[in-house]
Amino acid sequence: MLGNFDWKVVTDNIPFLWQGMQITLLLTVIAILGGIFLGTLLALSRLSGFKPLSFVAGTYVNFFRSMPLILVIFWFYFLVPLLLGRPVGGFYSVLIAFVLFEAAYYCEIIRAGIQSVREGQVHSGQALGFTYAQNMRYIVLPQAFRNMIPILLTQAIILFQDTSLVYVVGVKDFLVSADLIANRENRVLEMFTIAAAVYFVLCLSGSLFIKRLQRNYVQ
C-alpha cells in the first residue's frame, strides 16, 4: 500500500507545511519562556511562608491541572475577545491559554527542583549573611535549574506535542496545515502519515538528546 503513496503531494506542499511548522515552533518557544517565567513566580509563591500567597498559587496550579488543555483553549478562545471587546484572532488566544496552562505544570517542576536543593545549602547561604532573595538568586535557583534541566526539556517536548491541540480552534499550525492539504487534495493517508513521522523524528531526537545529557550528568 506504500506503493501508491503519493510523495508528490508532500513535496509540492513543503513550503506550506513549513509555514505551519513555524507557527508551531513560535507557539512552543513563547509558551516555554512564558510558562517558565510565570511558573517560577508561582513556585516561589507556593514555597513562600506567606500563607495567602501560597494558597492562591496552590489554587491556581490545582485549578489548571484539573482541566483538559482543550477546555482551557476553548475558554480563552471565548474569553479573550470578550474581555478585550474586539476580535484578536485565534493565535493570541491560544498563546495566552498555553502560557497560563503550562505555567501550572512548570510551577510543579520548579518547586520540586527547588526542594531538591539540600537544606544545608540554604543554611550555609544564610550563615554567610545572604538575604532570602540573594540566597534564591545565587545559591538555590542555579542549583535547582541545573537539577531540572532534563525534566524541563522533557516538558518542552510534551509542550511541543500539545501545541497540536490548537487544531480545535483552527490556528494554522503544522498539523492544521497538513489537515488542510489532506482535505483539499483528498490525501488523508499521506498527509497524516507524514505529519506523524515529522513529529516522531523531532520528538525522538529530542528525547535521545535528553538521555545523552543525563548520561553525561551521571559521569
Binding site: I157, S164, Y167, L175, F192, A196
Partner: peptide, 9 residues
C-alpha cells in the same frame, strides 16, 4: 513521541 491528537487521526 507522536502527539496524541495525531495518533487519534
Amino acid at each position: 513521541n507522536i502527539p496524541l491528537l495525531v495518533q487519534m487521526f
